[in-house]
Amino acid sequence: MKALEQILLQKQRLQQEMLKYMSLRQTSQEDAADLQKRILGCFRSMSRLFSDAVKAEEYLNMLHQLKDENIWKMFTSLLDCATTFNNAWSIRVDLLKSLGEKHELYDFVSTLSMRCSYLLVNKEYVKEILSAASEQKSIGNTKHISSCMDLLTAISSFFPSLLSGFEEDIIELLKEDNEVLKEGIAHVLSKAGGNIREQLASSSSVALLLERLCLEGTRKQAKYSVHALAAITKDDGLMALSVLYKRLVDLLEEKKVHLPSILQSLGCIAQIAMPIFETRGEEIISFITKKILDCSDDTAKVSADKSEWGDSSHSCLLKIYGIKTLVKSCLPCKDAQVHPGIEKLMDILKSILTYGDISPNMISRYYE
């Protein structure tokens, strides 16, 4: 999967630079020197994505000299994500025919047209993945479902526009009673939600489904769902996250069974919407320090026959999750500044590392 992601990343960069170059070709020639400088900058960036950067830049400069407008129209079509696979293939064939096999740019254009087109990944491919995921769910093949979700996540990370038009299919998969599908689709929406926000706006069930995962799902589901809510709703999700945040904080005292996912959701909200978190941040910090990190409390009590730090006990995991939430509350993704609570957090971490607990008077069984 890492190899595929690298391929898609390079493909994305090449497309972006090619689109920038195509736009510059249409720019007025009033400042020819500046325009030429910007075009050369695009060529330099694109050339680095080829094995022989020097030769690639030379070929790009030669390509720039071609006056046949049909060639550039064909490149424009290849760069359009709405172009179907069959059409893209035909366009590429016509493009190469227009040059001729004996043209010195033939091999380079063959490679360039393949790499900047949507022949490798396209809307038809996305449709097949969604269909396969649905079929595998019926069969109960978790491994194949996971593979489908991994592919869809990779595509949505680099080419989110390819998911446009498949909103209903995505929603249906999110509704399925399958944990792998829920996690995968939430992850996909966290990546591509911003590109299909308007189409999803007509379905109120999406936000409700994601909110439920934030409250009752696994920690991964909660993490992806918070980011998905921010992506698919207006104003970067401030209103949706505000409503969710209130429910999460209220549930801290009421509901112990879903604490891991609740803590995860709170931490993610702190990172992407610090102003919301700060409205009741003190309550959360107090709950974590007194009810989770303080060993004397029943919430974090460990069974007598288990070493607190020797295994992944429920109590130990809760402490880890609590610390992670505290750390996230001091590390917002945007406008990062020195947070006023960082010193208190450092004191807590220092005590835990020194004494095995939040207080020097509460030595863990590990040291007994």
Rank of each mutant, 00 (worst) to 15 (best):
S286H: 13
T325G: 01
Y106C: 00
Q16L: 14
L162K: 03
M18P: 01
Q15E: 07
L99W: 05
L263M: 14
D94L: 03
L210I: 08
I358R: 02
K324T: 08
N122C: 08
L79I: 06
K97T: 04
R44W: 12
G184H: 05
S146W: 11
G341L: 09
D68E: 15
I323G: 00
L210H: 04
V327D: 00
C295N: 11
R219H: 03
G356I: 05
F159H: 02
D177C: 02
Q271E: 15
W72L: 00
N61V: 11
F43W: 09
E176M: 12
L105Q: 01
E253F: 12
I285V: 14
T111E: 15
E216M: 07
V126R: 01
Y366A: 03
K301I: 15
S261A: 15
N86K: 10
A207Y: 11
D177A: 09
F166H: 05
T279M: 05
D68A: 14
C330W: 11
R44K: 15
L151D: 14
L9N: 10
I232Y: 08
Y59W: 10
G217H: 10
E211L: 03
E30C: 01
S225I: 08
L244C: 05
L259N: 06
S134V: 02
V257L: 08
A133R: 04
A88F: 03
A304F: 13
M74I: 11
M114P: 00
S28A: 11
L349W: 05
L95H: 04
S131T: 05
R197F: 07
G165L: 10
K137P: 00
L244T: 04
K182Q: 15
D169R: 06
E69L: 10
T27Q: 15
A230S: 15
V54R: 13
L8D: 06
L215F: 10
E104P: 00
I342T: 07
D250G: 02
L99E: 02
P260Y: 11
A240F: 10
I139S: 05
S242I: 02
L174P: 01
